[in-house]
Design a protein around this nucleic acid. Sequence first.
RNA 1: GGGUAGGUUGAGCAGGUGGUGAGCUCCGCUGACUGUAGAUCAGCCGUCUUCGACUGUGGGGGUUCGAUUCCCUCCCUGCCCA
Length: 384
Amino acid sequence: MARPIAFTARPTGVGRARIGSLSTPHGTIATPQFMPVGTQATVKSLTPGDLRAAEVQVILANTYHLSLRPGHERIARLGGLHRFMGWDGPILTDSGGFQVFSLAHLGRVDEDGVTFASHLDGSSQRLTPERAIEIQEALGSDIAMAFDQLVDATRRAAEVEDAMARTHRWAERCLAAHTRQDQALFGIVQGGVDAGLRRESVAAIAGLGFDGIAIGGLSVGETKAQMTSTLDVVADALADDPRVRYLMGVGSPPDFFVAVERGIDLFDCVLPTRVARNGQLWTSEGKLNLRNARFLDDPAPPDPACLCETCRNHSRAYLAHLFRAEELLAYRLSSLHNVTYTQDLMRRIRAALDDGSYGTLREAVTAQYGSAGARIDKPAVTDR
RNA sequence: GGGUAGGUUGAGCAGGUGGUGAGCUCCGCUGACUGUAGAUCAGCCGUCUUCGACUGUGGGGGUUCGAUUCCCUCCCUGCCCA
């Protein structure tokens, strides 16, 4: 039987970085690629048209939130998530595993699954591997994620190991429960920042029949050095695996380089859209906080090097005003820019991997995000 | 002109009838944010040499060891009467 997705990639000569192509039922994705987060069937403040304008190729939506509201059965009745939200490109759905982590205080994990109080009305809810798959099949995403358990990597080893082992058992249950032939299913590697556990987790997850391999449990409080070394371990362990690799929850502009060099093909992160709503724009001059007083009289576009709608038509002074006045347009214009910037950055990374300018690009971007990149190791590669 | 209620740090307030008024909300200034309970949160927001100290309750004067508080007077604002 034909796989729901197909992934091809070629090495680039830059570390373990590769350039690839991932075909899905709703379109083909160039990798490395970034997925904006649209938790509640919307990338906050942006329309599908905005996303297309920003050259977004795939978005992430959320099992937990959509099952609570409006309900996955309702979305299924209304023709599935793509039709419901008016986005006909590829969609990846997260399984709810992250909410088990971020809403841990509302729930309790047992071997079979998780019981928790809804953050909306306090009602008791149950999520299991089977349930997470059922919901994602109802939503009809192109790529579903296995239901996993992540814990704070700085917790004691036994706790991290327990969560990892449970994630492995849940992974098998997810595969067994998955029936939709037009939907891919990715497994998730856990194991905190412990090299031994990460190798064990890669062996367990990669040994199952998943369509892609995700790396979870990172960028949740560990240091940049720990994230980097963990990615090194995982990259080594996955070296001969042909499947697409997805680093969950990352990242910032400097993070992309660290991960791409270690063979990562897919990213998702709330950062570009969340920080945009809080006034932070990512630009060729680094991070700008448009709420700062100094921008009130600045007629320049947010990023002179950007061609997005925001930068073509509006000034920093205008955005600074919109943020102060709490006008809704501030959120859309800022989000549109940051998503455009991020897509542009990924495109430049793909191009640089091809033409030998990767090291130069990495150095330039890392320098622009000085403070953010300060804790990151120096470039692992240089231009050939 | 008479009466009455007021005047507190940019704004709006709280409090205070002789011995700690720098407390709150806005506004303002910064910072944070990584598989979104986040258009959110945190710090600062009189001055200084900032783990502390000083100044500050409309102006002036008085009583008192000590006054935001009591007394006198002036100014300003709202309302009522003339």
